[in-house]
Design a protein around this nucleic acid. Structure first.
Length: 671
DNA sequence: TCGCCCCGT
DNA sequence: GGACGGGGCGA
């Protein structure tokens, strides 16, 4: 495999004082020579030495949602309750030492005037979730829908504010953003001389970069942190790392962009008075600074227009961006230069790294009896591979600041699954109770699906899954294909759910069921009709055909090669638009206003796609602007490339299991 | 596909 | 811990 992304072997990393603290081979990926070819090519993907990724997350998101909804003063200490537990604590409340693990009582004790908001719930009899005074876990079920909508709004605004960026929603309150493309454009704009390849050729290194004004762009993670502890496994965080739960202190006044840690080009002084050599900055630093500029503007826009404060981290790849984002929270962003990576990473608890927070990280810690990234640097790839198999390369590289996983636009902000779940405070025993909860969950799914269909009609959840946990056993699940229905009603879902229930728990009246989950999975736009969201880009003739599962679809026959809308019943197709499959053109009709677009290019289809994509985005922006005031409008996105993806750590790996032993695994019991 | 498992917020 | 969401793997 190739691990080097620099065409020429990069020079050795700078070294502080010539101390041989760093095995040179460990972080020598971090300062690649950047050439004109690098700058001018557009398809370097994850190997792009100018890659810039951000992770942006909302601060105390659920709490912020409720504050906006209720229009309370930003300084109001507020917590969001789910039954008796706090699921979100805003920053003013954290000043009182309230943490997420507190109960309502404790929280109120710490802060008597605390605003306590219970999440919306579905109440028996009520068709829609709401905020009630008398929440009761025995009869209600939580609805997180409001937060989902708000989340979509934020994502939509980022997309609008950051044209050319890829955005991957990573959770309800987080998104990765790939700034590489727009940043490159801006670089060429600002430094036009870079566009001229010198006579020596495209592989000539770029000239020295201009000075960078970091002021106002965010917190620079120091290249030479000034820790009191140099290297102590266990507590060696390079800097105060605010954990989400850490209750105390540390509240930044809004808007205070914290000091930039260093600005001097080549020299700084650490607290102990030693001069520490600093690396010169690079074109990648320039790229980071531009991304920080863009990120900062977009975040500010979200804060002002939507009322959500966010924190972002900007770095060369996803996992570092994620780490960097938590460097300083609450309306802040931080920047991790490549040159700061080694010292930042080495003392880091590796279990803080994304995907190493679970069993894999545990297994690593146990296997080598260590806790920091630095501790693991001595393990050779070969050695790791024996015990951790395929995950090893990913781990090995991550420890060295390398992560080639892509930021992928998930095609749209539409989810691929929809889950409604309920933990029963007192396990149920009667079949009728099961039916009752299935109906409640089905009602929610119906509501949410039909809601999503307002934005993308023809959404089709291909399977329905019922999950139940009996007594102390592990949960079990049953699933079945879910036929396409133009109208998805509670009854249809509940009926299917009941069938699954019978298969899963049977009629035995005495088994205690303590949790029930009903989920749609495989949600996608049913082919053949109007392609309203991501479907519109695919040339209709190249749509993949589904395997023989068409039994699921009522009264449809399967025409083999015809790129026809054959998947839906006649009544389903009723109000769908026609498409002309055979011309090299793309057409699209906006489901919301009916406006039709057509691109008939003499160009290649890819360029048609691009044109269409542009049109679509512009049009979306139009709707977005209109909608912003009240309703959420998830916007469609174009998936451009399809590259082979890097191997991410996979959890099931025989060798790893062997290594981990029975010890770590028995958490989710059942042998 | 199905059922299970693991990752995350 | 609860209510989600994403993904991978063996059969």
């Amino acid at each position: 495999m190739m691990t080097s992304n620099s065409p020429t072997k990069s020079k050795l990393v700078w070294k502080g004082k010539g101390k041989a603290t760093e095995p040179p081979q460990d972080y020598d990926d971090l300062n690649p020579v950047i050439t004109y070819r690098h700058l001018l090519s557009n398809n370097l993907g994850v190997r792009d030495p100018l890659r810039v990724i951000a992770l942006c997350d909302s601060d105390a998101f659920y709490a912020a949602c409720e504050m906006n909804r209720l229009g309370v003063d930003p300084e109001t200490p507020l917590v969001v309750l789910q039954w008796d537990s706090l699921i979100a604590v805003n920053y003013p409340a954290r000043k009182y030492g309230i943490s997420r693990m507190d109960k309502k009582k404790e929280a109120l004790k710490r802060c008597p005037h605390l605003k306590v908001v219970h999440v919306a719930t579905y109440k028996e009899g009520e068709p829609e979730p709401g905020y009630w005074d008398d929440v009761d876990t025995n009869t209600h079920k939580v609805s997180l829908d409001y937060y989902r909508r708000e989340s979509l709004k934020i994502a939509a605004m980022f997309k609008e504010q950051l044209p050319g960026c890829e955005l991957e929603k990573a959770s309800i309150d987080e998104a990765f953003i790939d700034f590489t493309k727009p940043v490159r454009e801006i670089m060429l704009q600002r430094y036009p001389h870079l566009a001229q390849v010198p006579p020596e050729g495209a592989d000539t290194p770029l000239p020295p970069p201009p000075p960078i004004m970091w002021e106002g762009l965010g917190n620079l993670i120091p290249v030479n942190p000034s820790p009191t502890v140099d290297q102590k496994p266990g507590d060696g965080q390079p800097v105060a790392h605010e954990s989400a739960e850490s209750a105390q202190n540390g509240i930044e006044p809004e808007q205070k962009q914290v000091e930039v840690t260093e600005n001097k080009e080549h020299q700084s002084t650490d607290p102990r008075g030693k001069d520490v050599e600093e690396p010169p900055h690079t074109w990648h630093d320039v790229a980071l600074s531009i991304a920080a500029e863009l990120m900062g503007k977009a975040r500010e826009e979200v804060r002002v227009k939507l009322g959500y404060s966010t924190s972002a981290g900007i770095a060369r790849n996803k996992f570092l961006a994620k780490l960097t984002a938590s460097y300083k929270k609450l309306n802040n962003q931080s920047i991790l230069r490549n040159s700061a990576i080694p010292k930042y990473l080495r003392p880091m608890q590796f279990q803080k790294i994304r995907f190493l927070g679970g069993k894999l990280g545990d297994a690593l810690a146990k296997e080598y009896d260590v806790s920091t990234v630095g501790d693991l640097l001595t393990i050779s790839l070969d050695e790791m591979q024996d015990k951790f198999g395929e995950s090893s390369l990913w781990i090995y590289e991550v420890l060295r600041g390398i992560d080639r996983t892509e930021v992928k636009d998930k095609g749209s902000t539409l989810n691929k699954s929809m889950l409604a779940s309920k933990n029963l405070p007192k396990p149920i025993t009667k079949a009728s109770e099961g039916q009752h909860w299935i109906r409640v969950l089905a009602a929610e799914l119906a509501l949410r699906l039909n809601d999503a269909r307002k934005i993308s009609p023809n959404l089709w959840p291909k399977t329905l899954v019922l999950h139940a946990r009996k007594g102390y056993e592990a949960g079990r699940s049953k699933q079945s294909p879910f036929p396409f229905h133009r109208e998805v009603t509670v009854d249809v879902i509940a009926a299917a759910g009941d069938k699954l229930w019978k298969e899963l728990v049977g009629n035995s009246s005495n088994l205690k069921v303590s949790s029930v989950q009903l989920a749609f999975t495989g949600i996608d736009v049913a082919e053949g009709g109007q392609r309203s969201i991501e479907g519109f880009l695919k040339p209709i003739s190249s749509t993949k055909k589904r395997p023989r599962d068409s039994a699921a679809i009522t009264d449809v026959q399967d025409e083999e090669e015809l790129p026809q809308p054959a998947r839906l019943s006649a009544s389903d197709v009723d109000n769908l638009n026609d498409e002309s499959p055979h011309v090299p053109s793309a057409s699209y009709t906006c489901v919301r206003c009916g406006k039709a677009f057509q691109v008939t290019g003499a160009n290649q289809s890819s360029s048609i796609d691009e044109q269409m994509s542009r049109l679509k985005m512009e049009h979306d922006d139009f709707h977005f602007a209109q909608d912003l005031a009240d309703e959420s409008t998830p916007r469609s996105v174009i998936t451009v490339t399809e590259k082979k993806t890097e191997k991410k750590p996979s959890s099931s790996n025989k060798k790893r299991k062997t290594a981990a032993g029975p010890s770590g695994i028995e958490k989710f019991f059942r042998k």
